[in-house]
Design a protein around this nucleic acid. Structure first.
Length: 877
RNA sequence: GGGGGAUUAGCUCAGCUGGUUCAGAGCACCUGCCUUACAAGCAGGGGGUCACUGGUUCGAACCCAGUAUUCCCCACCA
């Protein structure tokens, strides 16, 4: 049978993923084993896979697969988030394209469309994760609007209401005039933009021709002005105290008030106050009992207070009013100005601060245990620098606006029975509400008169229950699953959603289960392109993950994305990294090809093979220990790098070369068997990173029984002993000698095929363990120990012993001399630096014994080497 | 404006409690090789004032202070 020259990823991947599914290896149910639980950060239900998901889910899969091999009951729960704003925006857009306006639909009709959309596009992303090899328990796939999930969201709201932690109130909220909903602070992105500062003059009331000038970036809001504010300490405006001003165009008379809030340095020192349209102005308005004039409609057009601008959009009005103010002599001047403006994360509309009646969660008390348990390390952050950011936020946590003026989501279970501000009750069903209303009002009310709140909850108000509700922890308290799987182990997510999601899950965990939702949080970075820009759909700079997988194989892409991605650092991604991953797959494939081609013969095991086996055993153990350590510290990319080097350098370049029989020569059975066992071990440690090729080769290298798959094989154990350390040190020496030999070949243009003699002048105790390896790897005709120097030879020094390779016909005495002189020069310089230290009395007095001894040894070694070099130089002349 | 990081080779990053892991790795680069596992490869090699300036110390990439550059978070000036 002809083994292909390169590894073909495509068929292999489909085959094994199906096999794993058939065998239900991803499926988990509670048993006697230790649980290892990961809940996926649920992607938007209608989303498609991007590079950020690739990074995030690869890391989770690596952790899960390793845990599975460590004998834990690994459970990775997948699912999707209903993503209320994002999804609703998409559905609205789609309907608009079909000529249907949302406002023409009833709530029920709209939701029907939304569910159709969800059924069509939902879960695409999960299918894509399968291509990546993610070993999620698909039988547990959850959705934040599943019936029992929804029930728990409502329960939590009702519970918080009963505890007095949610309230309804008028607040200045971030209003998205496009999505027509309030947003939380976290959903607003601030961008610096070039804008204009308009200087407008207001006439002082009851004067002939006295004016004051204010500076504003939003001239259209003057129609909502209800005061002018100056700093009481501002000497320039003392004469204005107690006066009134006249608003241009609308000619309303408004008071001039005093408040130290006003920055005397900025603009003109006079501030116009528009309580309805600015957060700070609102606060001022409350303090000074100002009137609040809201001049906008919900969609950002002006209302009847906008005079002749009624019905026009705020940005059009800004342009028009500039002209009118100029024409009428109110506009003194304009200046360029850079300021920060809030944009909706979802629709990119400019946020309008707007007063409205919303539901809020009081966060102060809830946040306390969540802060404490991160700071004291009960929940660990990786990297832990994020604790600072977390603390800063949690110590200044603000109340959470949880109502959204949307239809797609969990409708708020509040029921209104009148127009008064207190005419409502909170209950899960209309029937329960009716009972409560009757208790509250002591009147009999018709159930038909109850009207449910139109709004739905913020998406995160359901997402914060994710680690609990995927196990029905609230609807079926203390069920077997929640008791077994909760708290979950590791959460892998982006730092951007630390507050949106991570913090709130921690809050919910302590509030509802009295326990942390997870033990570790691994923060990934942002995936950027070569130019350092964030990869995004709008920039079009993100490669299509599925195409990458087709091109480089899932294993190659997994490796490419992990190799340079330490926790918390951004990942500058380039497809060449996937190429490296694909090359690595191919390397492993070819190593297998080599081993699988050997024929066994009943023959004696070469000494070199015996030594090689002993050495690789030790090397593997050493590196495995390192890899385990790195995993424990969540240094995933370093664990991969260590694995990569172990396989490529140690196993392929050294071990296989050491034991490789000559062309078409057979191998002894002991060596072959040992090699297969090693191969199996390295496949095991690469399995979490590159599961497909690992499984494929696992089955090719040995006949397997039914169910004997690497995905559930046991993670190797690492042992260490003194003997292992000795052989590792001995190998390092051998490696040095072989490198010297190769160098001599290269410098003298001696082909690898040509055998050479090596003579060793033994100056001190020498270890001969690797002699047979030297002969093989150096392609030596002989290795001989002598007491004399060899004349006319290339030479080098290793561990104080001298090595000679006699010159062939081509000799370059001068070059050899030069090399020796350079080495001598360097060694003398080195000795000098050591002596300097040793002659420093303070160093000798202050340094610990160990350090001193080391320096003395350095001195002795250097002296010895100098002696040898000088002698050799002498003999060359 | 407040807070937190970061700065080590061309790129991405390791470097623990200051001393043989001390200046490292991978990629990239350069030079030889189509040597029958692998050119998606093999062998060898060159790259760094550890951002800068001081200080502490017998000794600093590492500790301290300041400076510069840069990223992130929070709060914002109309």
């Amino acid at each position: 049978m002809e083994t292909p020259k390169t590894y073909e990823a495509k068929q292999t991947e489909a085959k094994w993923y199906k096999h794993w599914l058939d065998k239900r290896y991803f499926y988990s149910k509670p048993d006697h084993r230790e649980a290892y639980t990961v809940v996926i950060p649920p992607p938007n239900v209608t989303g498609v896979l991007h590079m950020g998901h690739m990074l995030n889910n690869t890391i989770q899969d690596v952790l899960v697969r390793r845990a599975r091999m460590l004998g834990k009951n690994a459970c990775w729960v997948p699912g999707t988030d209903h993503a209320s704003i994002a999804t609703e925006a998409k559905v609205v857009q789609k309907l608009r394209a079909e000529g249907i306006k949302k406002s023409d639909l009833t709530r029920e009709e709209f939701l029907k469309h939304a569910f159709e959309w969800k059924d069509k596009h939902g879960g695409i992303i999960l299918e894509q994760l399968k291509k990546l090899g993610c070993s999620c328990d698909w039988e547990r796939t959850s959705f934040t609007m599943d019936p029992s999930y929804s029930e728990s969201v409502l329960d939590v709201f009702i519970d918080l209401y009963k505890k007095g932690k949610v309230y309804r109130g008028v607040r200045m909220v971030n209003w998205d005039p496009e999505a027509l909903t309030a947003l939380s602070d976290e959903e607003v992105l601030h961008k610096e933009v070039n804008s204009k500062l308009f200087y407008l003059r207001y006439k002082i009331a009851e004067t002939e021709d006295q004016w004051l000038t204010i500076a504003t970036t939003r001239p259209e809001t003057i129609l909502g002005d209800t005061a002018i504010c100056i700093n009481p300490n501002d000497e320039r405006f003392k004469s204005l105290h107690g006066k009134q001003a006249i608003v241009p165009l609308s000619n309303r008379v408004i008071p001039i008030i005093l408040d130290e809030y006003v920055d005397m340095e900025f603009g003109t020192g006079c501030l116009k106050v528009t309580p309805a349209h600015d957060t700070n102005d609102y606060e001022l308005g409350k303090k000074h009992n100002l009137e609040t004039l809201d001049i906008f409609n919900a969609n950002g057009t002006l209302n009847e207070l906008g005079l002749h601008y009624q019905g026009q959009d705020r940005f059009e009005v800004r342009k028009a009013i500039e002209k009118e103010l100029y024409d009428k002599g109110y506009l003194v001047k304009t200046e360029d100005h850079i300021n920060k403006i809030g944009y909706s994360e979802r629709t990119d509309a400019v946020i309008e601060p707007r007063l409205s009646l919303q539901w809020f969660v009081n966060m102060k008390e809830l946040a306390k245990p969540a802060l404490e348990n991160v700071m004291n390390g009960n929940i660990k952050f990786h990297p832990d620098k994020f604790k600072n950011t977390y603390r800063h936020w949690m110590e200044n946590v603000k109340d959470w606006c949880i109502s959204r003026q949307l239809w797609w989501g969990h409708q708020i279970p509040a029921w209104y029975f009148g127009e008064g501000t207190e005419d409502y009750v909170v209950a899960k069903t209309k029937e329960e509400a009716l009972v409560l209303v009757q208790e509250k009002t002591r009147k009999s009310i018709n159930i038909a008169d109850l009207k449910q709140d139109d709004d739905v909850f913020d998406t995160w108000f359901s997402a914060w229950l994710w680690p609990i509700s995927v196990f029905d922890g609230l609807t079926k308290p203390n069920n077997e699953e929640i008791n077994y799987y909760y708290p979950t182990n590791d959460l892998v997510t982006a730092p951007e959603i630390m507050f949106f999601w991570v913090a709130r899950m921690i809050i919910a965990g302590y509030e509802y289960l009295g326990e942390q939702p997870f033990k570790n949080v691994y923060y990934t970075g942002i995936v950027r392109d070569k130019l350092g820009r964030k990869m995004s759909k709008s920039l079009g700079n993100s490669p299509d993950p599925i195409e990458l997988i087709e091109k480089f194989g899932a294993d190659g892409v997994r490796m490419g994305i992990l190799i340079s991605s330490p926790a918390g650092n951004d990942l500058p991604f380039d497809t060449s990294q996937c190429e490296q991953g694909r090359n690595f797959s191919n390397k492993i494939w070819n190593a297998f090809k080599l081993v699988s081609g050997w024929e066994v013969k009943d023959m004696e095991q070469p000494k070199s093979s015996q030594v090689a086996i002993e050495w690789f055993e030790a090397k593997f153990n050493q590196e495995l220990k390192e890899i385990n350590d790195l995993f424990d510290k969540f240094k995933i990319s370093e664990a991969l790098m260590t694995t990569y080097k172990l396989i490529w350098d140690d196993f392929c370049s050294w071990y296989l070369e050491m034991i490789k029989p000559g062309y078409q020569q057979p191998i002894d059975s002991i060596t072959l068997e040992a090699t297969k066992v090693f191969f199996e071990k390295i496949l095991k440690i690469i399995q979490p990173f590159m599961p497909f090729i690992a499984e494929e080769l696992w089955h090719l290298i040995r006949e397997r029984k039914e169910g004997e798959d690497i995905i559930i094989a046991e993670w190797p154990t690492s042992t260490s002993s003194v003997a292992q350390n000795t052989i590792l040190a001995d190998f390092t020496n051998a490696e040095e000698i072989i490198t010297h030999i190769r160098n001599i070949r290269k410098k003298n243009n001696i082909a690898n095929k040509v055998k050479m003699d090596l003579f060793v002048k033994k100056n001190k105790e020498i270890n001969t363990t690797f002699d047979s390896v030297l002969v093989k790897m150096g392609n030596l005709s002989q290795l001989e120990y002598t007491n004399d120097k060899i004349a006319n030879a290339n030479s080098f020094i290793a561990q104080g012993n001298e090595y000679f390779i006699p010159f062939g016909e081509n000799i370059d005495l001068e070059a050899e001399k030069l090399k020796l002189e350079e080495e001598l020069e360097y060694t003398k310089g080195f000795l000098n630096s050591v002596l300097k230290k040793l002659q420093n009395e303070k160093f000798v007095a202050g340094a610990p014994e160990q350090v001193l001894a080391n320096e003395r040894k350095k001195e002795a070694d250097a002296l010895e080497k100098i002696a040898i070099l000088e002698e050799k130089l002498g003999s060359l002349v």
